[in-house]
Design a protein around this nucleic acid. Sequence first.
DNA 1: AATTACGTCAACCGCAAAGGG
DNA 2: TCCCTTTGCGGTTGACGTAAT
Length: 309
Amino acid sequence: MDMAHERDSSSSEEEVMAGDLRRGPWTVEEDILLVNYIAAHGEGRWNSLARSAGLKRTGKSCRLRWLNYLRPDLRRGSITPQEQLLILELHSRWGNRWSKIAQHLPGRTDNEIKNYWRTRVQKHAKQLKCDVNSQQFKDVMRYLWMPRLVERIQAAEAAQPAADTPLSWQHDALYESPELPVDACWPAEYDVASDGQLPNTSVPEQSGTTTMSSSPSTDSGTGAQPSWPAAVDGVEWFTTACDASSAAAMCDTNQLIQQQQQQAPCQLGEAWTSEPLPVPAAFPELGVTDFEIGSFDVDSIWSMDDLWC
DNA sequence: AATTACGTCAACCGCAAAGGG
DNA sequence: TCCCTTTGCGGTTGACGTAAT
């Protein structure tokens, strides 16, 4: 791919033309065109949509922009511990089936989950000098990270009872509740005017610069909590660490955690308790036998520094 | 203050499946 | 059945921001 090259070649006007089609970062004007068109006509038939909306983009590009960035029901901010737990579990179950995994994380896109996996999880596998698909790494996840996530979730719930904010909160923020912190849910340039119209603001061209709250600092600080999907059917790690029969009928993360607590240790592994963790035999090879339950960074359960250093 | 290294994520690509004529 | 278009998916890239030196 050659985005940089294309951008460089068009730097004078920040427009990248491939034939008659634009490529590269979306401008605010394009976003507004797309949002308004979809609001009026709905989505689908992306190629004709792109033409009808007056966008010099491929249908593919429009679809991607809508699904990964403009869709009003997107959840913004960094991945919560609950979501991390689900991602780990579902990935262990389905592998790189990002879209399938995303279906169980409301408001999250496959792209986002994929990025998360690659930037966080794979990084730590690399640090451990093991393959992300290796049994060693899976053991680390199962016996160290997942239990820590559960603890974090429990601690958070104990400290602050969950407010079951509907997933439409971003939608509300965009279309109905301008008083909400915009950076927590929507790029500021899309702030809704009093007349309900999306403003035609002039902001930096590159979507990267218009990008909202992707930084960890804006994260879960919004206080919004996802409502979890009704059915996450089955829990894979039980099947590998424990008896497969105990994995049935898992419904959501909270149920998941509750079941963790209720299971007999021999079934779930003592890892799920707050007692000292039984470190699998493979861990000494990884140099993690001295693992201690330390404090995790609020925004990065995956900070291996917290674990090993 | 300048430079380098690193992390994040939006956007691209190619491929395959699905749908329709 | 074939062909073309559309849609969806997973992998990859590179711009950009920030931390480290």
